[in-house]
Design a protein around this nucleic acid. Structure first.
Lengths: 275, 275
DNA sequence: TCTTGACCCTCCCCTAGTGGGAGAGTCAAC
DNA sequence: GTTGACTCTCCCACTAGGGGAGGGTCAAGA
C-alpha cells in the first residue's frame, strides 16, 4: 500500500536534494527500498518519508550522519532515547559555551583590556600534595575542580595545613594537541600520606615570567598573549610546562570578576639572557 | 624591538598549530613578517601575537576565516565594530534557533505526535490582496510578518473587509534551494488599489490535500511529512506550489500552542486519480 | 669541519556533507 | 521514433585544517 517513488519524487516529498539522497545511500544511512540492478535507478517507498524527516531533524541540529545512523539502528526505544538525549545534552553544552564566548567577546569590545604588569620571579621547590593525570583540554576546568577538592579533603583529613594557594602545572601538549599531562597541587607543610589519587609532590623550582590575570578564565587567552609577546620580545626562550596559581578562585568567591590567577611561563635563568 | 620568531616559536607562543599557521599564510589571513626567498622559511614578529590571539577568538566562535579577514582588514574601528557586532548577532540568532530546535525535539520525544486527519478540498479562485517576493527560506517567517501586516494596513486604509484568514503560496524551490518565490495574501471582497508592495491578486483554484497543523511552526515538518506520505501512498502526483492558511496565528494569540495552520499540497484533480 | 638531530619546506591525500557539472544511459509521452 | 526530462557514475570544489612522505636547513657539539 506504499507507493514507489523515483529519487526525484522522493526528493520533492522530503525536501532533501537528490545529491543528498544519493549520499545517504552511499554511506548506508537511508537505503532505497529497491535498486534496479541493470540501470542503477533507485526506488523509494512513501513509508520511508518519516525516516527522511527524522534525518532532516537531526541534521538541522548538526548531528553527524554516523550518529544519526546509530539512532535509527538502535534496537529499542530506550537505547534510542538515550542516544538522542546524549546528543542534545552535548549540544546544549556547546551552545552554552558559545554563548559564554560571545558574551566575553562583547564585553571585550566594550571594555578595552587594562594593561597588566609582567614580572620575573624565581620559584623555589615547593613541597605539596598533588594529583596528576592526562586530560583533554575541554575537560580541564571540571577535572581541576574535582582534583583540588580531593586534595583539600585529604589535607584536612590528615590535619595538614596548606602553605599557599593552589597551583596547576600544564604540559604544552595540552594546548597544542588538546590533550596532555596536568598537575594540580596545594602546598603542604608536611608530607601527605597517599590517599586515592592524591600523593606527595614537589613542584620543581623554576624561573617564571608572571602575569596576574583578573576576572573570568574565559578571557585568559589575553593574558597568555600578553605574556607570549613579552617573552618573545625579550628573547627569552620558553622552557617546560606553564604554571598557574589560583590566588582567588571559585573556592574563594562566587563572583568571577574578582578572580585572580597568576600565570607563569618558564624562561631560562636570567644569567643566560643577553641584556 | 619586536623579536623575530620561527614558525615553531610562533606556534608555541600562540597555541596555533604549525599546520594552521601555514594555512593562514596560504589564504592570506596572517602573513609572516618575512619569508626567506631561498629557503621559504617563515618569520613572525612578536607584535603579530595579538593578531593571532584575535583570530583564535573568532575561530572559537566558528567565524569563517574569510570573515575574520574582513574584520582584520577593516579600514577603521567603526567598520570593524559593525562587522563583529553583525557576526555576533547572527551567531546569537542561530543559537536561539538551535535552542528552539532542541526544545522542539525534546518535546517531540516526550509527547508522541497525535495523528492528524488529511482531507481533500477543492479551492475556488479567491480574489485577494497580496505581496509577492523572492525570499530566502531563513527570512521567510520575518518576511511573512511584515507582509501580512502591510496587507492588513492597506485593506484597513481602503476600508475593505477581509474575506477569511491569511494564506501563503510557496514555490517548491523555496524548500529545495533555500530561496524561491513566496506570496502572502488576504482574501478581499473588493479589489484593492495598489499601495507599496501590496497589489490585487487572485489565488488560483486548486485541488489540495489538506492537513491541519496545531502548534508552533517549529514542528511543521512533521505535518509536511504526514502529508507527503499520504500523497505518495495514494499516488497523487504533486503539482505546483504548496499553500498554507493561517487560521490561528501570531496575530490572533500569543500562545503558539493554539496556532492552527492548514497546509495544502496541490494534487491532480481527482478525476485523474485511479481509485 | 663534520655530523646529528631538530626544525622547516612543499606536495599530496584525508576528513563531512554536500553542490556543480560532464558524459552517458533511461523513461515516458507524443 | 524522437524528444525532453530524468537518472546514473565519476570527478572536482568547498572549510579548516591533520597526517605523512620526501627532502632541505639550521645550530650545537665533537
Amino acid at each position: 500500500m506504499s507507493g514507489s517513488l523515483t529519487i526525484g519524487d522522493f526528493s520533492r516529498a522530503t525536501f532533501l536534494s537528490v545529491k543528498t539522497l544519493r549520499h545517504y545511500h552511499r554511506v548506508g544511512l537511508l537505503e532505497p527500498s529497491d535498486v534496479d540492478p541493470i540501470t542503477g535507478y533507485r526506488r523509494y517507498t512513501s513509508n520511508q518519508i518519516p525516516t527522511a524527516q527524522v534525518i532532516r531533524r537531526f541534521r538541522d541540529l548538526d548531528m553527524p550522519l554516523e550518529d544519526i545512523g546509530s539512532v535509527l539502528r538502535a534496537p529499542d526505544q530506550t537505547t534510542r532515547g538515550r542516544l538522542i538525549a546524549a546528543h542534545l545534552t552535548r549540544l546544549e553544552q556547546s551552545l552554552a559555551d558559545t554563548q559564554r564566548a560571545v558574551a566575553s567577546l562583547r564585553d571585550l569590545l566594550e571594555h578595552p583590556w587594562p594593561p597588566a604588569a609582567i614580572e620575573h620571579r624565581r620559584i623555589p621547590a615547593t613541597p605539596a600534595a598533588a594529583i596528576t593525570a592526562t586530560v583533554e583540554v575541554g575537560d580541564l576546568a571540571a577535572w581541576y575542580q574535582g582534583a583540588v577538592g580531593e586534595i583539600r579533603a585529604t589535607l584536612s583529613a590528615q590535619s595538614i595545613a596548606s602553605g599557599g594557594p593552589p597551583g596547576g602545572i600544564y604540559a604544552n601538549e595540552l594546548f597544542s594537541e588538546e590533550r596532555g599531562e596536568a598537575t594540580v597541587f596545594l602546598p603542604a607543610h608536611s608530607e601527605v600520606r597517599p590517599v586515592g589519587r592524591v600523593g606527595p609532590f614537589t613542584a620543581p623550582p623554576v624561573e617564571l615570567a608572571f602575569i596576574t590575570h583578573i576576572g573570568s578564565h574565559a578571557d585568559v587567552d589575553r593574558s597568555y598573549g600578553a605574556l607570549a609577546t613579552y617573552v618573545t620580545e625579550h628573547t627569552l626562550a620558553i622552557e617546560g610546562p606553564v604554571r598557574e596559581y589560583y590566588l582567588v578562585g571559585r573556592h574563594d568567591t562566587g563572583d568571577e570578576q574578582d578572580w585572580r590567577t597568576e600565570i607563569g611561563w618558564p624562561i631560562f635563568d636570567t644569567i643566560h639572557v643577553p641584556i
